[in-house]
Write a protein that binds this DNA or RNA. Structure first.
Length: 279
DNA sequence: GCAGAGCAGAGGCAAATTGC
DNA sequence: GCAATTTGCCTCTGCTCTGC
């Protein structure tokens, strides 16, 4: 289905005809902009206080819950996912702060045609994601961009298959002190139809520093009508390093309270150990 | 299960540097 | 001169380990 859709989109680009404008709604969130007579593909449009991200990234431990100082190198690790989606990951484990950076990268890349460069100053980027601008923050951002560009993900489901980096390329102009990032054009596959979610930046910022709460928030944001999941299922999905279930449940309870406070959702764990969220 | 010690990483802030 | 950016260093936080 998606392959056919993509072929059709490409065909329409090649045709470069005016009828495309009328059909843009058919393609959901991917759209095209006429610029000097050329049609250019861009990321989906979303308000400035939200960050768009493919659901597939939120419903797995790709950006997981990692304890402080517990980041490790993962080689060909199969991530726990929902609905038969297959994710294999190689690279340094990614956590919620890496997700903050990737979300901001995607946001900035929305402003240019796919495959084009985006330039930014470190200070401005750190401010955008509500971080401090100390030396350690500069070093942290650099290491974060390295992680995102070096890691390799393999994603497969019944419709498509993708192998690549989260950031296609990044480098720094030492003269202008600017970072330049480029995203892989194929990333647009993940933004077709209802396969992506807009994350409220305001709500996410309220959960800053609380990695499990941030993961839970993103996970349930990707659900229009949240299903109930067992505590054990969520434990596996978020990639928690807490092996003992009752300990994880304790943390989860606290996180659900924090998410509830930040979003206004009703969150509870029933006697059968199922987590219920009501938006 | 709890308390205290030690440690690593993150956070905070003031000062220095740079560019306009 | 001023705002933006970068640097240096100290403090804070949260985790593990150990002993009780």
């Amino acid at each position: 289905m998606y392959k056919n859709l993509y072929n059709r989109i490409n065909k329409l680009i090649n045709e470069n005809n005016s009828s495309l404008k009328k059909k843009k709604n058919y393609y959901g969130t991917s759209y095209f902009l006429k610029n000097n007579g050329k049609l250019i593909k861009k990321m989906p449009v979303i308000s400035d206080n939200k960050r768009s991200i493919p659901n597939i990234m939120l419903r797995s431990s790709l950006f997981g819950v990692i304890k402080k100082g517990n980041r490790k190198y993962e080689k060909n690790v199969l991530k726990t996912t929902l609905n038969g989606i297959f994710i294999r990951f190689t690279g340094e484990s990614l956590d919620q702060t890496d997700l903050d950076v990737w979300l901001e990268c995607l946001h900035r890349l929305k402003k240019v045609p796919l495959g084009e460069k985006v330039k930014f100053k470190t200070y401005n980027f750190l401010k955008s994601i509500n971080r401090k601008t100390g030396r350690s923050d500069y070093e942290w951002l650099k290491s974060c961009l390295i992680r995102l560009s070096v890691c390799c993900i393999e994603i497969r489901d019944e419709h498509f298959f993708y192998v690549g980096h989260l950031l296609h390329e990044w480098y720094r102009n030492e003269k202008t002190k600017e970072y330049i990032i480029i995203l892989n054009k194929k990333i647009i596959y993940f933004f077709t139809d209802a396969m992506w979610t807009g994350i409220s930046l305001k709500e996410r910022m309220k959960l800053k520093g609380k990695s499990l709460s941030q993961w839970i928030h993103c996970f349930y944001c990707s659900h229009k009508n949240p299903l109930s999941y067992k505590v054990q299922t969520l434990q596996k999905l978020c990639g928690s390093s807490i092996i003992v279930l009752w300990k994880f449940r304790q943390n989860l309870k606290k996180s659900l309270e924090e998410v509830s406070f930040a979003t206004g959702w009703k969150c509870l764990i029933d006697i059968n150990d199922h987590v219920h969220i009501k938006k």
